[in-house]
């Protein structure tokens, strides 16, 4: 049987999470496998909230775009897979809403041997301006057709283009084999 101390710990933990979510204005938090159903549920939930909040149409569309690409990144590329079906990756997914902006955050496990190439890809995207992103998008969409895997990073390029912001990312070491990859995408709530 659980002792009282442990029970108190878990109650504290719940309150702590709640407070931290409030403080960071998180209105959607999830950790688990990202299935197609989850993607549909989260996007439609957020759409309903946004139209109630009367965000600009263009902002709503951008948030929708970014959410879908972020969720699909986890689903396809996370190196921690679902126990039920290996086609679905697992990860952390957060949407927060401030006065000025929406933040869509993902966190997922990736193998260390992929970190360097992913870092390079993200750096490359962040170094491009609007025109450069457009060129690389066109190039990738053409090349992507030829390979089974996604044309390297089409989703990231799309996020950078739709938001007009730099991608914020970090790789935190877990152990010798894996790291935790965090990506934050920011969508301004002002009309662009």
């Amino acid at each position: 049987m659980e002792n009282t101390d442990q029970r108190h710990d878990s109650l504290d933990f719940v309150f702590e999470i709640y407070q931290k979510m409030k403080k960071n204005k998180v209105n959607l938090a999830y950790e688990g496998e990202i299935t197609h159903q989850i993607t549909k549920a989260f996007t439609s939930l957020t759409e309903t909230n946004m139209s109630a909040e009367e965000d600009y149409n263009s902002v709503q569309k951008k948030v929708f775009h970014v959410m879908v690409e972020c969720l699909q990144n986890i689903s396809k590329h996370a190196d921690q897979r679902s126990v039920v079906s290996s086609k679905d990756g697992r990860g952390l997914f957060l949407v927060s809403k401030g006065e000025e902006e929406y933040n869509v955050t993902t966190g997922n496990v990736i193998k260390n041997d992929k970190v360097e190439s992913l870092k390079k890809m993200l750096e490359n995207i962040n170094n491009l301006d609007k025109e450069g992103l457009k060129q690389i998008y066109k190039q990738q969409i053409k090349e992507g057709r030829l390979s089974e895997k996604d044309g390297a990073g089409l989703g990231f390029i799309d996020i950078a283009r739709k938001t007009g912001e730099k991608l914020i990312y970090s790789f935190l070491p877990i152990d010798d084999e894996s790291s935790f990859f965090i990506l934050i995408s920011t969508i301004s709530r002002k009309k662009l």
Binding site: K61, E69, Q72, I141, G144, R145, D150, G151, G155
Partner: peptide, 13 residues
């Protein structure tokens, strides 16, 4: 109204 990047390649096809 909307298409994701995965669809964008097939639309190109």
């Amino acid at each position: 109204e909307y298409f994701n990047t995965a669809s964008s390649k097939l639309l190109l096809d």
